[in-house]
Structure formats: structure tokens, C-alpha cells
Design a protein around this nucleic acid. Sequence first.
DNA 1: CCCTGCAACTGTACGGTGTAAAGCTGGCGA
DNA 2: TCGCCAGCTTTACACCGTACAGTTGCAGGG
Lengths: 224, 224
Amino acid sequence: MTTRTTTRVHHREPLTPERVLQTALKLADQGGIEALSMRRLGRELGVEAMALYYHFANKDRVLDGIVDLVFGEIELPPAGAGWRIAMRRRAISVHDVLARHRWAIGMMEARTNPGPANLRHHDAVIGSLRSAGFDMALVAHAYSLLDGYIYGFALTKMNMPYDFSETIGETAVRMLQPFPVDEYPNLVAFISEHAMKPGYDFGDEFEYGLDVILDGLQRAHDTA
Amino acid sequence: MTTRTTTRVHHREPLTPERVLQTALKLADQGGIEALSMRRLGRELGVEAMALYYHFANKDRVLDGIVDLVFGEIELPPAGAGWRIAMRRRAISVHDVLARHRWAIGMMEARTNPGPANLRHHDAVIGSLRSAGFDMALVAHAYSLLDGYIYGFALTKMNMPYDFSETIGETAVRMLQPFPVDEYPNLVAFISEHAMKPGYDFGDEFEYGLDVILDGLQRAHDTA
DNA sequence: CCCTGCAACTGTACGGTGTAAAGCTGGCGA
DNA sequence: TCGCCAGCTTTACACCGTACAGTTGCAGGG
């Protein structure tokens, strides 16, 4: 027993890429991407920072890894369903995943070294559209339109001071504080007449825009 | 003459917020946002880094400043024109401005302290839609849809390895290199049959998507 | 059983970052 | 002439990514 304990202490569980990435993902989720430093990651794993460089060439490879974990969480477009339902579910899934991993929003499309989950995801989306009869040009249109909107919406939403202590309207009012009241009449009107109304939730805008886009793609598909 | 020169040397042109921000913008444009450090900015201005803290509370205020410079470059929606032309021109202007200042893409919507140009811009957009008869709910829909798409498209486009040494298709092929050829058939088909074709330019996708969105908004406006 | 080799990890160092705190300095008003 | 103080510098601290060399403990071969 003693021997085993001693051996255990000396011969601790070795690092694996998986364990490193899981921990890195946890750190980024908890404290944002700036909380993920090699030193902190090492400390969390009971290891010096430089030990990580035995398993990963540099920090960017770690980032590649956790981004692919995030891609892995995205629901693939269901194969049986029609393209519109498939695209809608996928879009909402991406949106949900990005809400869980806000730090990832600027990074998902920035990978020069995409991982397998990333590629599998893209492959499935293209496949879903193709098998619904989209020609390649329309696939390209649809994909850039959908992904642009999904990521852009997440980007603008993420950046809102979304701490639940105040409403969007209250935040907006605070932002306008330093300026003369009558300088931005339309902005003021929008905030007071709409954004500050109790029922308003900016998050609800996502599906509205998504359906506008899907309508447009449907029309383009039908007339093709 | 000698005296004047001596005085000049001792009593150099003092820093102004404007001069600091112009230089900061130049640095970010030239070398990306990571090239903009307080030390480097100080050096560029012939001053120690800490001198900047006499004029700006911290680096974030400098970032606020240059982001508002970027907002100032965006063409406001022309007042006389109809909402659709106005929104189209504004969208393309934002797109162009973001192409000139790629570092800004993640930051435009992230400001907790918006500057005057930022607010003026938002005010004008809302004003343009309102005066065209959009009710507030539709203004909110339109704005989140348009800005989501504009920023998201810029985000995905910016992150492409857009050095002019290779085409998009060649890049894609290089990305797929480490993987078995038949693993991602749809992706491969898309690349070979479409993205690698000579005429293809991803940048062209922007206006297609924009018009789909404008069509959708038009329909919503007409039926309202 | 010992020895060597090597995978896995540590220690140290370098040049960078933002910024707090205190010190200097030259021109201006009294 | 003197003192003030705006504007800047100096120094320091705690962090960052990572190059490079050193250590350690186990596996396998002789």
C-alpha cells in the first residue's frame, strides 16, 4: 500500500491531449479566453506550463483543439428531414453552443488547422443542402448567408453587457448618460419605446432573422 | 535660431488624444490589433508608454477611441433615399470599412463606452427605417438581422487566409491534406466543383446575402 | 541485476504585456 | 523670483508565450 502510494505520487497520471483539452475548455468557459494561459492550464493539471509543450507544439494548437471540441457539440443537420428543418435545427444548435462557449465566437471560423469535428460539420451541412437539390452556387450562397448571420448575431449578442442585474434598456440608458438627451432622438425613442418595454428580449430576434433568411433561400431554391 | 531649436527639443509638441488615436489606428491597421501595445504606441509618438496614461485612463479607452474613428468612416444612410437603398449603401459601407480595419471586426459591437460616431451612426440607421414607416418591432428585427449578417460575414471572410498567394480552393485543399480523401465527400465536391473554379470569389457572396435579407425585410414591411 | 535510453516533465531565462506609484522638469502666474 | 503643476519619465510588479537545457523514473536489452 505504502509502496503503491509512493509510486502513485511519483508516477502520477500522465497528461493526455484529451485531458489537457478538457481542462482548457473548462478554463475558457469559466473565465473567458484570457483566463486560458499555459501557466494556468498547467497549474490546473498539476504540472508546469512547459510540460504542455511536450504534447502541443504551441498554444494555438491547444486553441485548435478546444474549438474542435466545441464543433463536436453542434448538432449535425438531421439526415432524414428536409433541408429547411435541418438548417433551422443546426442554426439553433450553433447558437446554443456559442452561448455556452462565448469565448469561441471569434475563433470558430478562424482556424487555419480545422479539426475533424469542424470538417465533419461542414461536410454534413453541404451534404444536407446538396441532397435537397441545391446546386453548388446556391450551396455557397446559403452557407455564407446562414453562417454569417449565425456568427454575427452571436457576436453582437455576446458583447452585450448581459449580466442579469439590469435590462438591455437600463444598459442603453447608462451608455447614453454622458451625452445630451436630444442628440440622438431616434436612438432614445427606440430605447424608451421598445427596448425598455418589459416583454422585449433581444435573444428572441435570432429566430426571426433566421426565418427571414430561410424564406429567402426557399424562394431561391424554388425558382431555380 | 539655436534657442528656438533648443526650446523645440525640450518643449516638443505635446500629446493630444487625437494624435494618439490617429497613431494607434495606424498601428492597428498595419500590424493587427496585437501590434497595438502601449509601449509601441508610446515609442511611435516619441514618448514613454506611461505618458499615454496621462491622457487615457487605460488601454481600453484607447480602443474605444479608435473604434469610434472607424465608426466615423462609415457612410451614414443617405437621408433622401428610400430605406432599402439607404440600408444597402450603409451595409456595403460598413463592409468596406471593416475590410480596411479588419482588427475592428470583433470590437465594433463590443464597446461598453460607445463614442459619438457610434451613436450617431445607430441613430441615423434607426431614423432612416422609422421615417420609412417601420414600426419599432420591425426596426429591431431589421437592425439585428442586418448587423448580424454584416459583422458575421466580415468575421468569416476576415478569417480566411486571404493572402493573395493562393486561391481559396488551394487553401481548402491544404487544410484537408491531413485527412483521408473520402472522409468528407461533400466538402471535397464543393471545393473541387465550385470553390476552386476560376471565377469564384467569396467576397461576391456578400451582396447576394444582403439582397436576400433586404427582400425579406421589404416583404415584412409591405405586409405590415 | 544492472545499465542505458528515452518519454515526460521541470527550471530557468528572455523579451514582451498592462499599469500602479513615485519622481522629475520646465514654463507660467503671482 | 518663487512655487505650482501639467506633462512626462522611471521603476517596479505580476503576468504572458516559449526556447532551451536539465532532471527523473520506468522499460527493455544484455
